[in-house]
Amino acid sequence: MSPEIAVLEIQGQYRVHTECYRSQVAEQTVILVNGSLATTASFAQAVRNLHPQFNVVLYDPPYAGRSRPHNRHERLIGKQDEAQVLLELIGHFHADHVLSFSWGGACTLMALAHRPRTIQTAVISSFSPVINAAMHDYLERGSAYLASVDRPRIGQLINDTIGQHLPALFKRFNHRHVSSLDDHEYEQMHFHIQQMREHDLQIALHNARHIEIPVLFINGTRDDYATVSDARQFTRHVRNSRFSVIQEAGHFLEMEHKAASDETRRVLLEFLLPTQRDYRSRAAVRDTAFNAGHVLAL
């Protein structure tokens, strides 16, 4: 299963690496939004859970992964900038659904507040409207390690906290990836932490009142950083909130063990599939969009 790979020009200033897993049987498209320090590679299991029932689109933000070499990094990018990137990608791919992971939920909520016309539903996983004591400690230590570019401690921190329930092999891959990033990526993540703690989370929650589509929040019972009880407070911000709980799963849900993966897949398909639209009326438009002149490199 190989994706169609393209680098798209966004807003005349960013170049974004995208991967589109097309399906011969799918009528709708899901776009996935990464959490902090993650890349498209982090969504391997999510793609397996959603394809071939859906076309699945992944992307790296301008400062990370395979997008990073295509950008000049002259300034740091805020969550509201990322929301605008997401909105343009939604329009380009005519996405029907959006699924975010962890802190990717902030820019996703910001984007959804603009009510993109093609989006029917959204899924926000491993995210909470509350920075609880465990998350506060994680962000405090992470901020210090990122500021000093202490690579080994950054990698170990993630494995000891939000990644504590990952299998050993995943922890090794995780540590290798996180501890070998470019200095600019650490600077970008440090900036995100500061912005989220100061105002971006509140902006995202304030704007979420404009979201009208159904939004499903998924959290694991073993996640101490975005807890089930904290996530349920989204009812105060998103009027059409729905909630699912993955038993015996931590922050990384489907990546932690097979039962969690199977249950996450069941929950996703049960929520997303009943909302299918009439695809035929938009088939020609979608085919045009996939071949639009935004592509810079293949």
Rank of each mutant, 00 (worst) to 15 (best):
H251E: 09
I193E: 03
P214I: 12
A231W: 10
D183P: 01
H190W: 01
S180P: 01
D200L: 04
Q247M: 05
A208W: 02
H237W: 08
G250E: 05
H199E: 05
E212R: 13
Q247D: 07
T221G: 00
Q188A: 06
V238Q: 10
T227V: 00
R197A: 11
Q188L: 03
H251R: 06
R242Q: 14
Y186S: 02
E187A: 15
V215G: 09
T227Q: 11
L216F: 09
I218R: 04
H206N: 12
F243K: 07
E198N: 05
R209Q: 15
I193M: 12
H190P: 03
E248R: 10
N219F: 02
G250P: 02
Q202R: 14
A208E: 08
I218T: 07
T235E: 11
S180W: 01
Y186T: 11
F234Q: 06
E248F: 02
R209H: 14
R232D: 04
E187H: 14
H206I: 00
R232N: 08
L181A: 11
A249W: 02
E185K: 01
L181C: 08
S241F: 04
R222W: 09
L216C: 12
R232K: 15
A231F: 10
A231L: 02
V215T: 13
Q202L: 02
S229G: 05
N240M: 09
D224H: 09
T227P: 03
F191L: 05
H192L: 03
Q202E: 14
N240R: 07
Q194V: 12
R239A: 13
E185H: 07
E212F: 01
A208Y: 04
I193G: 03
R222H: 12
I218W: 01
A204L: 04
R239F: 04
V228A: 07
L201S: 07
S179R: 01
E185L: 13
F252I: 10
S241Y: 11
H251C: 10
Q202W: 00
Q195C: 00
H184T: 06
I211M: 09
R236S: 13
R222I: 01
N207Y: 10
V215H: 05
S180Q: 12
A249E: 00
N219D: 11
R242P: 08
E212L: 10
Q194N: 11
D224V: 00
E198A: 12
S179G: 13
A226E: 13
D223V: 04
V228Y: 02
S179Q: 08
H192Y: 04
Q233C: 11
V215A: 06
S244V: 03
E198S: 14
I193V: 14
I203D: 14
E212G: 14
G220C: 02
N219G: 05
Q233N: 09
M189T: 15
I246L: 10
I213G: 06
R242V: 06
E254Q: 14
R209I: 13
I218Y: 05
D224E: 14
Y225H: 12
Y186K: 01
D182C: 02
R242Y: 03
